[in-house]
Design a binder for these strands. Structure first.
Length: 887
RNA sequence: GGGCGAAUAGCUCAGCUGGGAGAGCAACGGCCUUACAAGCCGUGGGUCACAGGUUCGAUCCCUGUUUCGCCCACCA
């Protein structure tokens, strides 16, 4: 027995490392490709970036997934949690370039092939970091199946998808205005641009009319783009310009003349109602330029510097050029006005550089048809989004979607499978690298230098990881996946695109449910960020408080649709819970010298019946909560059960039985119940706190293997032995009410727990009489009473404090000890409470509308409450007056 | 400009389809009662943001207002 004893305090670190190793070695996370019997359950992990370091978002995201996976395994399902990482094109390239820079080199010094080798090297060395961190979190992924978005199989899937979309006319190449990051030197998709409100200026600049009759004043926030202007636009019905006869203006700081055009696109209310048109550097102007056949002049180069079109400003950075140009315009008297204006400026989501709208040749996905399918799938309920209000956001986005720019001018990523024949100019888009041109037989084929947007490959993740385009058993068993768990920040980047690709290529949605969780913020509700210095490192938290405490904290705060404000104190609070559980187990183990795997239902005590009944309800509630993604509910249901019911009442109540005061048969029965309850409680808790539950499970006698292989308790409720018992709950509630009454008197009277007390209970109620005789010892123990006598309602004892229990009076005899004034005060307080409740209920009953219209059971219930309170009040008053008379 | 969400105890938050306001932490008082002082027992504390409406009845449903947060959007 002594060897089974647990240490006094729970020590997480050694336990966590040991069990994680055990689970891996015994393949307890492994899914079966095919399983004829068990139902399948699958989740694909949102692949963290290889450059990633575990942050709070990952911690929450993966804790929730792990809870679901572990829960479903306990429910007997064949569970696949597919792990992997994302190559994260721009992010990873940036990291490696930085590393090169510290060696004084650039990627161009290495050349494309050598650079890519270098990235792979980097990945080999550091790419596993995030995986190890997920393992510290307890993530039960099927690690043998780990995938990477750049590995061979996934690359094949990417090519296949690209070629098919191209052949279906859903991928095209063209010159369009895209968002350009001058630092990363690549195009970005609209989504990859972060807009931020910035204080800036609106410059009013005079463009002289060529006939010398004056000038047109345009308003712009980006004066440096004027070198790319190819027109000035007015609204056709703008009366201010109705008389204008001159059809062209002279572009300031240049020798060019540009036309004046009319278009209703121009907003007459804004600025001067006169718009400068720069088709190569502004998306609206681009459209306008096409409509009016305007020339497209690029004045800003890909590195963000002005080019030859800017004359004397050529070579200057765009922002320097802005200042210089404004100064020059002012000198020439062409700057009419400079006013304050805050407007939103786009930044690169990777490096935060201000993006430049730029004209270039790029590849695009025509998303309309794909979005239609993805939209319909959710409308038809094939995929359900939780919490539901995100569906609306999803719909909005899908309905207003624009074509997706997928080419990136970087090296790290899936190179676009398109080649140009140098001889005949033919463009080839193929899955396999071509040797010769099918048209002219030429062998000088040049592959596109661009790579694909990282999100292109992650859009295929749910099926590419399962072996698509092969028809694998894995796909057959696990696709569509059961649920996708993710944060809302990548709803569009990732979830929406998986929906498009999944419905298009698999003819089936990628997941049945999408659970969108909150963001983890700091204690003040601010987003955690390096620049604010408010980042809490999950690994440090784990180090300090243990993984289970951390996981329980995240789970408790993971209410649907609400952000989590995390601080260390909160984790500390839940560490107490882990410790409480540990100590409860320690106590139990002192009495469980063997596996008590059965008990005699006839020999069990009231607390036994009660705790079994409670376990039954709590198990059902926990199951319900987990089935509906109400993680915080599951956590709090179990927390309260373990602490406030199992520890506070049950363990205290069975102590005399365990110490042999009720005989051997009773002891055996109670040990059986204790064994059962603690076992089931551990299983219920295991999905949330896997380590401590496994550790305790192992120490329990019986040698039942890993807790991961146990059955979730609700699967096999044995109704004979373990059923919901309202009678037992009512009885135990009576005991609790009585005991609490005594404790209240003790507390309010400042009587030490050591002080011996005697009590009388006056009742004519048969049930109560029965309770008092049957469970007298139990009540005496819990209330620390020397004697507790029951007698018919009669004369009240003299010096006693009163507590009303279920309408009957309990008298705690305090001869020589009672402070009469204090007792009167206490009873007054109790009465005031009753009066307050009574007030509301009486008003309700006097309202004829309520009595007539409210449903029968409700009225009945309220009436019963009323009777009870009236009785209670009368009792209190009688006793109060009696004591008052003795002062 | 559109959309979404939040406002409940000193703090952080629950409160599922309308029927007597809850938890944790903090505070206060008392306890080292042989699993646990990371503990035990007890106590206090809320016009459920504001104003209307629907209803017999509203923290919950509807309308409006205020404050805060987020997302989306090509108005220079």
């Amino acid at each position: 027995m002594s060897e089974a004893l647990l240490d006094k305090g729970y020590e997480p670190h050694e336990v966590e490392a040991r069990w994680y190793r055990y689970w891996l070695e015994n393949k307890l996370f492994a899914a079966k490709d095919r399983d004829g019997e068990r139902e399948a359950f699958s989740i694909v992990i949102p692949p963290p970036n290889v450059t990633g370091k575990l942050h709070m978002g990952h911690a929450l995201n993966n804790t929730l997934q792990d809870i679901l996976c572990r829960y479903q395994r306990l429910c007997g399902k064949n569970v696949l949690w597919m792990p992997g990482t994302d190559h994260a094109g721009i992010a990873t390239q940036n990291v490696v370039e930085k590393q090169l820079a510290s060696e004084g080199k650039s990627r161009d010094d290495l050349g494309r092939d050598a650079f890519i080798d270098r990235v792979w090297e980097w990945r080999k060395e550091y790419g596993g970091a995030i995986i190890h961190q997920l393992q510290r979190l307890g993530a039960s992924c099927d690690w043998d199946r780990e995938r990477f978005t750049m590995d061979e199989g996934l690359s094949r899937a990417v090519r296949k998808v690209f070629v098919r979309l191209y052949e279906e006319g859903l991928i095209y190449k063209g010159h369009y205005l895209i968002n350009w990051c001058p630092r990363c030197h690549t195009a970005l998709a609209d989504l990859e641009v972060e807009h931020e409100e910035k204080a800036s200026f609106l410059y009013h600049i005079a463009y002289p009319l060529t006939d010398g009759s004056g000038s047109l004043v345009v308003a712009t926030t980006r004066p440096e783009t004027l070198f790319g202007d190819t027109a000035v636009a007015l609204h056709p019905e703008d009366e201010r310009y109705a008389d204008l006869s001159c059809a062209s203006v002279k572009l300031p700081l240049t020798d060019r003349e540009i036309p004046v055009i009319r278009d209703s696109y121009v907003d007459r209310e804004f600025g001067t109602g006169c718009l400068k048109v720069t088709p190569a550097h502004d998306p609206n102007d681009f459209e306008l330029g096409i409509k009016h056949g305007l020339e497209q002049i690029k004045a800003i180069d890909d590195d963000g510097r002005m080019n030859a079109h800017a004359g004397p400003f050529a070579g200057l950075d765009r922002f320097v050029a802005r200042e210089r140009a404004v100064a020059e315009l002012e000198k020439q008297g062409l700057l009419v006005k400079k006013e304050d204006l805050t407007h939103s400026v786009g930044h690169c989501y990777r490096c935060k550089t201000v993006v430049e709208p730029n004209l270039s040749l790029q590849w695009f996905v025509k998303v309309g048809p794909l979005a239609d399918k993805a939209l319909k799938a959710v409308e038809e309920g094939k995929t359900r989004i939780y919490p539901e209000n995100w569906t609306k956001t999803y719909y909005e986005w899908m309905r207003n979607i624009r074509d997706w720019c997928i080419s990136r001018q970087i090296w790290w990523g899936h190179r676009i499978p398109a080649w140009t024949c140098e001889d005949c100019g033919r463009l080839l888009v193929l899955e396999a690298d071509p040797e010769t041109c099918p048209d002219c037989g030429g062998t000088a084929l040049t592959q596109e230098s661009d790579v694909l947007d990282t999100w292109f490959s992650s859009a295929l993740w749910p099926f590419s990881t399962m072996g698509w385009p092969e028809k694998t058993d894995l796909l057959k068993t696990f696709y569509p996946t059961s649920v996708l768990v993710t944060g809302f920040d990548i709803l569009f980047f990732w979830v929406a695109r998986m929906m498009m690709m999944g419905t298009h290529f698999m003819d089936e949605v990628p997941f049945k449910d999408v659970y969108i969780h909150a963001l983890v913020r700091d204690a003040e509700g601010k987003k955690m960020s390096k620049s604010l210095g408010n980042v809490i490192d999950p690994l440090e938290v784990i180090e300090k408080y243990g993984t289970d405490a951390f996981r329980f904290t995240l789970t408790s705060f993971a209410a649907m649709g609400r952000d989590i404000k995390l601080s260390e104190e909160r984790v500390e609070g839940y560490r107490h819970f882990i410790n409480k559980l540990w100590n409860a187990a320690r106590f139990s183990l002192m009495h469980l010298d063997q596996a008590y795997d059965s008990f005699d239902p006839k020999a069990i005590s009231l607390p036994d019946q009660w705790i079994l009944s409670r376990l039954h309800s709590v198990g059902a509630q926990a199951q319900q909560a987990l089935d509906t993604y109400r993680f915080n509910d599951a956590a709090s249901i179990l927390y309260r059960f373990v602490w406030n019911e199992f520890c506070d009442w049950y363990l205290e109540a069975i102590k005399p039985i365990l110490f042999g005061k009720s005989g051997d048969a009773a002891m055996r029965a109670t040990k059986g119940v204790l064994y059962r309850v603690i076992s089931d409680t551990l299983i219920l808790l295991h999905p949330i706190v896997p380590f401590v539950t496994e550790e305790i499970w192992e120490k329990l006698p019986g040698g039942r293997g890993s807790i991961m292989e146990a059955d979730f308790p609700t699967l096999n409720w044995d109704n004979q032995r373990l059923a919901y018992s309202p009678e037992a709950e009512v009885s135990m509630e009576f005991v609790i009410e009585l005991v609490t009454g005594v404790r209240n008197i003790r507390g309010e009277m400042n009587l030490s727990p050591a002080q011996a007390l005697n009590a009388l209970f006056h009742t004519d109620n048969p049930f109560q009489k029965e309770m008092l005789t049957q469970h007298q010892d139990l009540m005496k123990l819990l209330a620390r009473l020397d004697t507790l006598d029951v007698m018919p309602v009669g004369e009240r004892p003299r010096a006693s404090a009163t507590s009303i229990v279920s309408g009957s009076a309990l008298y705690v005899l305090l001869e020589g000890v009672l402070d009469f004034a204090k007792e009167v005060e206490r009873l007054d307080k109790a009465m005031a409470k009753v009066d307050k409740e009574l007030g509301g209920i009486a008003a309700k009953l006097e309202n004829s509308g309520f009595v007539d219209k409210a449903p029968e059971p409700v009225v009945k219930k309220v009436k019963a409450q009323y009777e009870e309170l009236v009785e209670k009040r009368a009792q209190l008053l009688a006793n109060r007056d009696r004591i008052a008379g003795m002062v």
